[in-house]
Structures are given as structure tokens and as C-alpha cells.
């Protein structure tokens, strides 16, 4: 436990110092919320505005994109050549995975809290009654996406191929979930396609909680995300390969 907490402390320190990591999880969502909110300001009325909509949908999307940064965080030690040091020290692979996972989850969740509270204050999103459940869902989503990202970064042999195209399915999932523009349909088949994106469920559960006061989907979604996160954490530990983890000379790998 002291070793894990020590590793976690240094990992958090590195995440906080990483300008790109913070910029992407703090500045980017705010910019997108205000840009897209402004872009759609003429489409909405006064009671519910585009700013409200994008505050809710942009955070889950940015959290999903954090899968990429988590995958890179998994490879960070290999790139810096410090992976070898961790491997020959009395540190278990579970400690390595958990330190990375928790550091990413904690820092991104803090960024989410800051974005959600500042956006809510500025644009008066009526979220205060649901603030804690929404943040909890986003934190669990962060945990799940980081676990998947780490599984990719630590456990997959063809990381080089995956890392380049990871943003494509995430963006596609974002489009289907209405992260860029609400996509509605009354066609049952198309509705099924839209619900293939996990982001659709997350966005829907937040809207239901905040605007329809229906909490059940949010808790179910959070439960499923938690299960997915735990499964992928287990997989990341199980498929953790010492040789791959210390392999910092991957052609084309960079932090």
C-alpha cells in the first residue's frame, strides 16, 4: 500500500504537470461548450440553450477521448526508459496498473468537476440538485475509459496501429450520441444504431436525471461503467506483459 500510494503520488504529479493532459481535459471542454453553444444559440429558446446542451454532452465525450491519453500514459514509462526500473524493483504489475489508472481517473475527474461547476455557474445549468450523481457518473466513466485505454496501452501488442485510429471510433460514438449535434429519429432501427454508442446512454441518463428527474438510468449506466472498468482493469493486469511494458523502442512511439 505505501508503494502504491507513493507511485500514485508521483503519477498524479506527472499528470498535473503535463500541459497537454490538463489542456485537453480542462480547456478543451470549456472551449467546445462555449463555441458550440454560441454556434447553436439561434436554434434554441431561452429556457434551455445550446450552452446547456453542450455542457452535458461534451464532458462524457471528452472523458471518452481520455482513453487515448490513458493509453499513452500506459506507455509513458517505456518511452522514458523508466519502465525497467519499475520492473526490477519490488513492485507488482497490479500496482503499476493501478497507479496509472487511479492517477488518470483522479486528475481527469478533478478537471470534470472544475469544468462542470464553472460552466454551470456561468450558463446557469440547473444541475445543482444532480451535481453529485452526475459527477459520480462521469468519474466512473473516466475510470472505465482509462481502464480500457490502459488495457490498450499496456496489454495490446499492436499498440502502434491502435493508437493512431483510436480517436476515430470515439468520434463516431460521439456523433451517434449527439455530442456535436442532437441526432434524433423515430425509426426504431436507426434508434438502435444510435444506442450502440455507450455515450448515447451516458448522455441520456444525465438528461433524464437533470431534466426529467428520473434517476434510474443514471445508476444503471454507472453500474455498467463500473463493471466495464473493473473488467478492463483485471484484463490490463492479466495481459500486462513485462517485455511489452519495458519496450520503449517501439518504432514511432512517442509521448
Amino acid at each position: 500500500m505505501p508503494i502504491l500510494s507513493r507511485m500514485l503520488y508521483y503519477d498524479i504529479k506527472r499528470r498535473v504537470k503535463d500541459g497537454f493532459f490538463i489542456g485537453y481535459n480542462l480547456i478543451f471542454p470549456l472551449v467546445m461548450i462555449f463555441l458550440l453553444g454560441y454556434l447553436t444559440s439561434e436554434s434554441y429558446g431561452t429556457e434551455f440553450t445550446g450552452y446547456h446542451y453542450y455542457t452535458v454532452v461534451m464532458l462524457p465525450f471528452c472523458v471518452a477521448m481520455a482513453m487515448i491519453t490513458a493509453a499513452y500514459a500506459g506507455k509513458e514509462d517505456a518511452y522514458r526508459k523508466t519502465a525497467l526500473r519499475l520492473l526490477f524493483s519490488p513492485v507488482t504489475k497490479a500496482q503499476i496498473v493501478l497507479a496509472k489508472l487511479l492517477s488518470c481517473t483522479i486528475v481527469i475527474s478533478l478537471c470534470n468537476i472544475m469544468v462542470l461547476s464553472s460552466a454551470s455557474l456561468i450558463i446557469r445549468l440547473p444541475i445543482w440538485g444532480a451535481f453529485f450523481p452526475v459527477i459520480l457518473l462521469l468519474t466512473i466513466e473516466t475510470f472505465a475509459t482509462c481502464a480500457i485505454g490502459l488495457f490498450i496501452g499496456l496489454g495490446m501488442k499492436n499498440f502502434i496501429i491502435v493508437k493512431n485510429i483510436l480517436n476515430i471510433p470515439i468520434c463516431a460514438g460521439g456523433i451517434l450520441a449527439g455530442s456535436f449535434y442532437p441526432i434524433g429519429t423515430l425509426n426504431p432501427k436507426l434508434n438502435t444504431v444510435l444506442h450502440l454508442s455507450p455515450l448515447t446512454w451516458i448522455n441520456k441518463s444525465i438528461f433524464l436525471y437533470v431534466f426529467d428527474h428520473a434517476p434510474s438510468l443514471l445508476w444503471k449506466t454507472a453500474g455498467i461503467c463500473l463493471a466495464v472498468g473493473i473488467i478492463f482493469t483485471g484484463l490490463a493486469v492479466k495481459f500486462f506483459k513485462r517485455e511489452e511494458y519495458s519496450h520503449g523502442d517501439l518504432p514511432g512511439f512517442d509521448q
Binding site: F20, Y24, F28, M32, L35, L36, Y38, L39, T40, S41, E42, S43, M65, I68, T69, Y72, K163, N164, N167, C171, F180, Y181, G252, D254, Q255
Partner: peptide
């Protein structure tokens, strides 16, 4: 590479929105 990939996705999304792919140009400010 990671910053290039993420920048390209973000920029492409913004250009797509500005270009009227999702929201008609007439409806923009």
C-alpha cells in the same frame, strides 16, 4: 503524435460544425 492526432480530431470537428455539416449555416449567429 498524440497531440497531433487529438488536435486533428478537434480541429476537424470544429470545421465540420462551422461548415454546416450538422447545423445549417442559416441557423448560425
Amino acid at each position: 503524435e498524440v497531440s497531433a492526432n487529438v488536435t486533428s480530431s478537434s480541429l476537424a470537428a470544429i470545421m465540420s460544425l462551422l461548415g454546416g455539416t450538422f447545423i445549417s449555416i442559416e441557423a448560425m449567429p
